[in-house]
Design a binder for these strands. Sequence first.
DNA 1: AAAGGGCGGCTTTTT
DNA 2: GCCGCCCTTT
Length: 719
Amino acid sequence: MNSLNSSQRKIIETINGPILVLAGAGSGKTRVITHRIVHMIQNIGISPSNILALTFTKKAAKEMKNRISDMMMNQTDFDQITLGTFHSIFSNILREESHWLGFKSNYTIYDHKDSENVIKQILQDLNLDRSLNYKEIKRKISEYKNNLYGLFYKKKLINQKVEESITKIYKFYTKRCFQANALDFDDILLHTNYLFFYFPNVLKKYQKKFKYILIDEYQDTNLSQNTVIKNLVSQHKNLFVVGDDAQSIYGFRGAHLSNILNFHLDYKNAKIFRLEQNYRSTNYIVQASNNIISFNKNQILKKIWTNNEEGEKIKIYCASSEEKEAQYIACSILSIKRKTNLQFENFAILYRAKIQSHIIEYSLKKKNIPYHIYGSISFENRKEIRDFLAYLRVIVNPDDEESLLRILKKRNQKTVKNILSLSKKKGITVYNIIQNIEDYKSLLRINNKTKNKFISLIFTIEKLRVNAEQDNAYVIAKNVINFLTKKNYYNYKNEDFQSILDYVFQYVKKQKELKNHGDTSLFGFLQCFYLEIHEDINHHKENKVSLMTIHLSKGLEFSIVFIAGLEENLFPSKSSLSTSFKIEEERRLFYVALTRAQKKAVLTYAKHRFIWGKKKENTPSRFIHEMNRNFIDIENHHKDILEKKKIHSLNHFHHVNHNKNYENSKYLKMKKGIKVFHKNFGLGIIVELQNQNQIALIKFQQSGEKRIFLKLDKLVIYS
DNA sequence: AAAGGGCGGCTTTTT
DNA sequence: GCCGCCCTTT
Ligand SMILES: Nc1ncnc2c1ncn2[C@@H]1O[C@H](COP(=O)(O)OP(=O)(O)OP(=O)(O)O)[C@@H](O)[C@H]1O
């Protein structure tokens, strides 16, 4: 506990009442929240079971869990703390309390794809215009739910017609999910809201249990989440939240800064603390990120400062293609590692979009650099994995129509279509129809062979289902695999198959090791699969370079951080260019990325990038232009790396940097009164430098006064 | 009824 | 360049 400064200490020692810690990057928010939990348990004597600690991402939850367990050395029953993501915690509560809301506790969690499929079907059923894009509708429904439209709030209709049809689809969607006994991610919080709103006794129970609530990254709460919390703390008001408006990056999930801005209105007598000393990064990094965030109009002003060393300037590297960008990163890692005593685990490569990971992975592999990709796309989206999970899901919940249809579609598409329409006409579940397929034989116009196929399938599932009551998840999973292998539906000797089975095995093993009551049930496994972080079983993460999206990197820190793909249309993302609101969120994302670095940040971008199989030319990101030139160092030839080894691929680095004049630091000499020559405007004289020396006000002989962005490098000193 | 080719949309980010 | 969907072929 002696590793806190006086303001941090004061914060952790304030136990009761509503508290907001509004603090900058690297100022010790997570440190404060974890220390506070330990302090509450060890010094104040609060029972761990009365503490609820919430995060938004699975990764942040795991990080916090690790930090607390390290600090408590496992001495107390710290696993009694309720700690996890909003979704994971409230999904557990819903499992207990589902009966109040009229659904069954064995509910299925629909992921993104499941929801989209449901929407696609609804569009088909309603014969609606295909131009209504299902992804857009999914987003809208999500928006409705996250903002609790219909529950406590009415939505202002902007485009009446569109909104009306979406409301209609929303209704059907809700009905389908209910019939399938399924919840999507947003439902987990929405239903918790229903639960607390309509059943005050249930709310009371949880108010009593969770006497102290702590939330990390509060800037990312949406209304639905915030309302759950408001209800939970309405009696005792012991709510402790930490956040940084400059790091709000989940707007697309309905996160709203108003939660942080109105904290003092929501909670009278709220204490608000600020932390502005950065303990993480070098002064160059702190200054550069302060400068970047200053381009945002919407922000709460903070003065982040540090006592740390000056450090190195932020490196910027321009590659000719994304492949060379990746090679550069790989080479740099090796070169920095050689020169310092850093380990691979001290390096991170961050990117805007997951897709960028492939090419980087490839070049790391080539150089034998160990790496770990967090949140990799492949696993849960693999066809075989989804097929397999569909069986598990139906075994747990036969009403899960998405999964059942997925299984059936592999067999007899036409009959399945008929069954589906019959199910809708008669209002009987698909599972029920197949169970009693003998009765519907004539209606469906199927022969005995087809009929028997369905009977044998349902027979198998039923058998597995009956056993599922006693068997643990692994036993069932193995049975499913045996069945599938026997039937030869898939070539299940493949790796996907082994790895998911291994995953189930690890889950069951871990549960069995728990002191109290491990949950080895299949439901428990599925809930873990959808809501908890996927532990890499066979691969250790130790001493590996970390690859992840910037979103996932929030809350983490690394000595050396590479930020790849700083190009317009990629970062900022193409879909964010339309409004300044969205651009500001992209800028905050860039701010998050920069502030992950302790010692050194390297920004890279590629002039050309393959997108949809076509080579596209991109201009450098506006964020590169926004970097204050006093804090950056543009690298072109990379002599130090090139000279070391004669690796053939290194020859690639002989290309010319997009902007040699940076290195010549010609315009570092730009001063008031100097004569300059501009590419387009000709001869002029610098009147003054503005915006931290990034813009020069120049009086041109021909075209009068103009403000010139120095980084665009259209200027030459005229002498 | 299955398999395979052509075509269009897609890649923003997470639970 | 890849995936899902639809249409055609066998
Ligand atoms: N008082 C302190 N003395 C020494 N080191 C500290 C102190 N407070 C925080 N740190 C260190 O500073 C770093 C950043 O802390 P932490 O991760 O808690 O910050 P944060 O505010 O959560 O950052 P961010 O919001 O950027 O994720 C950590 O390495 C932490 O150990």
